[in-house]
């Protein structure tokens, strides 16, 4: 009985697609831009994880600036140093005094706050 059903099932026919079917698909698709991959992990490496993303970002960055890796690292370290110096790390690490507050902004000491409560 099963074989006979399969004989009947083989009678099923599929109509031909439009003659320009494939070329229509190609034209429609390739006029659209491709979405850039968020993460492009290489085969053989773990596809997920923070470091995978950071590595991909780093590789993209290297490609975009086209500098050798040591020069890039040195530049980034120097930039980080400048940024830290310009933001005044010394002040931000210590306790701010009322007298130090620029432009009249009052920074309350923690001890004073406790006294208020």
């Amino acid at each position: 009985m099963g074989e006979e059903l399969e004989t009947i099932m083989k009678a099923r026919r599929i109509p031909e697609p439009s003659p320009d079917f494939a070329s229509r698909i190609i034209a429609e698709a390739t006029r659209l831009p491709q979405e850039r991959a968020v993460r492009r992990s290489k085969p053989g490496r773990a596809p997920d994880g923070l470091f995978s993303g950071l590595r991909d970002w780093w590789n993209d960055f290297r490609e975009s600036v086209a500098l050798p890796q040591p020069a890039l690292v040195m530049t980034l370290v120097l930039l980080a140093g400048f940024a830290a110096g310009a933001s005044g790390l010394d002040d931000s690490l210590g306790a701010a005094e009322e007298d130090d507050a620029p432009f009249g902004v009052v920074v309350l000491d923690v001890m004073d706050m406790e006294g208020l409560s």
Partner: peptide, 26 residues
């Protein structure tokens, strides 16, 4: 249906073109 089948395949291929990285060979 022929027309609908063509649309289905076209949409699938367009998706493939736009985002080929959605297929992961690994």
């Amino acid at each position: 249906q022929q027309e609908e089948a063509e649309d289905i395949v076209q949409e699938a291929f367009v998706k493939l073109w736009k985002k080929p990285q959605s297929w992961n060979p690994d």
